[in-house]
Structures are given as structure tokens and as C-alpha cells.
């Protein structure tokens, strides 16, 4: 009995100790933070960070709304106040909420807010994960910030496990050549290997036909990850499969019809064989963060249906 009491006491001191621990971390804009955890009042300003934050077991104090917020995330946000649009959050409302931390994206609209919020004594951390590893790191970080380490670990593990499974499945097969196009037929861009979608493609076991093109801008990976379509390059590359990300989430039945009606496309082997698929914008047009594991598995099944029978 005494032993149990003692160990309980020990556990209590440990947990109270961690509860008031100073945590130091660095955000993706390079700023360093030292904060007492766990935090309970956090405002999250964009969709992908919200998704990771919720997956890490956090409950935001308020959030900024976006048209790209997936439905399941929107459901979890019911009843939580909004502070405006992602591109233009209401700074006055944020300050009035007195958050301990604001989490945003490393892009101009949020970078420009950092100083203003600092003036009001509010810290702003910016996270824009550009690789699947970044995603799991950020989820674990959010778990530590909000004191939900176990929940965050489970979420991060789930992503890693799903990707590992796909990696094992596709390890020894002959890789198919894939071209992923983003945009509309009048304005297609090719998805490059260093974009998030490109990384998911290679994780899914596909060989991106654009991998031979050198990319100069390594820093700004998400936006450097698209190149204007070069049809001659594509024709010479002769992809096995073409995947289209348009801005709609709807599955249009005839993905190939857009391409097969154009003589510039119709002679391509992938188009002739009907190997043209639509990819959902919600998952592949933006960083799907928490859903990366599922997305990679889905992509792999589309490319290698024979492997998953």
C-alpha cells in the first residue's frame, strides 16, 4: 500500500513537473520560442495547421476559416469562434481573445502579422511543413505544446506506419512512370518531385517523369514544386499514367476525355490506354498533413491496383 502511494506521489510530482516545464522549439520561419507548457489558449490560423493540431489532441481557442478546410475538420470546429479568413485574420479579435500562442503558416499574410501581435504581447509561431517528416514532427510538437503527447504520438505513428506499408509493398516492383498535372487544360503545371504531392507520389512507389528536370529554387519548396507544362518533354517521357488535379473535389467520371479530345494529348500512350485519373484537390492539391498516410496508400493503389488485389 505504502509502495503504491509512494509511486503515485512520484507520478504526481513528475506530471506536475512536466506541466510547468519550459519548452523550447523553433518554428519554420526560424524564430525560437521558450514557453511554459501545457498551453490551453492557442489560436490556429490555417487549415493544415488546424488539422495537425486537432490530430495532436489540441482544442483551438479560435481558428481562421478557409475554403479548403476538409469536412471532418470543419465538424470538429463546431462551436469554436472564428477570427476571419486565413488570408486576412482579424487581428483585433485575436488580441481580444488573449491567446498564449498563435499558430500560423509561413506565408506573407501571416508573417506580416507577427510583429503586430508581438506588440500586443502575443507570440506567433509559423509552421509550413514541406515534407511528410515535417508533418509528423509538427504533430508531435503540437502534442507537447498542448500536453497530449500520447494522442499526438498515435497520430504521427499512423502516418508513418501507412507509408512504411506502402514502401514495403512497392519495394521490389518495376516502377511505373507517372505524370501529375495541376490546374486546368488551358494552364497546366507539372508537379515536380520536390513538391509535397511529388513526395507523396514517390512514397507511393511512382516514378515522376519530371525527375530529370533540375529545380533551382530549393528553399520555397511548395511553390517551386510546379513547372509550366512542357508537352514535348511529356511526350518524350512517355508516362504510363497521367493524374490530374483540378480545383474541384468532385470525381468527374471521364477524367481522360479532356485530354483525349485534344490531338496534342490523344497520341500519348497513357491517354490511349485510358490511364488518366483525377486526384482530389482537397487531398493532393494542398498539403493533406494528417491524411498523408492515407493519401499515399490511395495513390499507390491507383498506380498499382494489381499489388493490392
Amino acid at each position: 500500500m505504502k509502495k503504491i502511494l509512494l509511486s503515485l506521489l512520484a507520478l504526481l510530482t513528475v506530471s506536475t513537473f512536466t506541466a510547468h516545464a519550459d519548452m523550447t522549439f523553433r518554428d519554420h520561419a526560424g524564430a525560437s520560442f521558450t514557453i511554459k507548457t501545457p498551453l490551453t489558449r492557442i489560436v490556429v490560423l490555417n487549415s493544415s495547421n488546424l488539422e495537425m493540431f486537432l490530430a495532436a489532441g489540441g482544442k483551438p481557442l479560435a481558428y481562421a476559416a478557409s475554403s479548403t478546410t476538409p469536412e471532418y475538420v470543419a465538424k470538429q470546429l463546431a462551436g469554436i469562434p472564428s477570427v476571419g479568413q486565413v488570408q486576412n485574420p482579424d487581428i483585433e479579435r485575436i488580441v481580444a481573445l488573449q491567446p498564449e500562442l498563435v499558430i500560423g503558416m509561413n506565408f506573407p499574410f501571416h508573417v506580416s502579422m507577427v510583429q503586430t501581435l508581438k506588440g500586443a504581447g502575443i507570440k506567433t509561431a509559423l509552421f509550413s511543413p514541406t515534407t511528410p517528416e515535417d508533418v509528423t514532427k509538427v504533430i508531435r510538437l503540437y502534442g507537447e505544446l498542448t500536453g497530449n503527447r500520447t494522442k499526438a504520438e498515435t497520430s504521427a505513428r499512423a502516418i508513418e506506419h501507412s507509408m512504411d506499408r506502402v514502401k514495403k509493398r512497392t519495394a521490389s516492383i518495376k516502377k511505373k512512370k507517372v505524370l501529375v498535372l495541376f490546374g486546368s487544360p488551358e494552364s497546366y503545371s507539372m508537379v515536380m518531385p520536390n513538391s509535397y504531392t511529388g513526395m507523396m507520389l514517390s512514397a507511393a512507389g511512382g516514378r515522376n517523369i519530371t525527375e530529370g528536370i533540375k529545380q533551382t529554387d530549393e528553399k520555397n519548396k511548395m511553390s517551386a514544386g510546379f513547372l509550366p507544362l512542357n508537352l514535348e518533354y511529356v511526350t518524350a517521357g512517355d508516362p504510363d499514367i497521367i493524374m490530374l488535379i483540378n480545383h474541384s473535389n468532385k470525381e468527374t467520371a471521364a477524367a481522360g476525355s479532356v485530354l483525349s479530345s485534344s490531338p496534342a494529348w490523344s497520341a500519348l500512350r497513357a491517354v490511349k490506354n485510358g490511364k488518366v485519373y483525377n486526384l482530389k484537390f482537397e487531398t493532393y492539391g494542398i498539403n493533406p498533413t494528417v491524411r498523408t498516410g492515407e493519401a499515399v496508400a490511395e495513390l499507390s493503389q491507383m498506380i498499382y491496383p494489381e499489388l493490392y488485389k
Binding site: 475554403s67 495541376f182 490546374g183 494552364s187 511553390s223 509550366p228
Partner: peptide, 10 residues
Amino acid sequence: SDKVQGTVNW
């Protein structure tokens, strides 16, 4: 703004 990328070439 997330969909603008697809229109810039045009």
C-alpha cells in the same frame, strides 16, 4: 489563393 497557381500561366 490556394487555387491561383492553376491560373497563372493563362
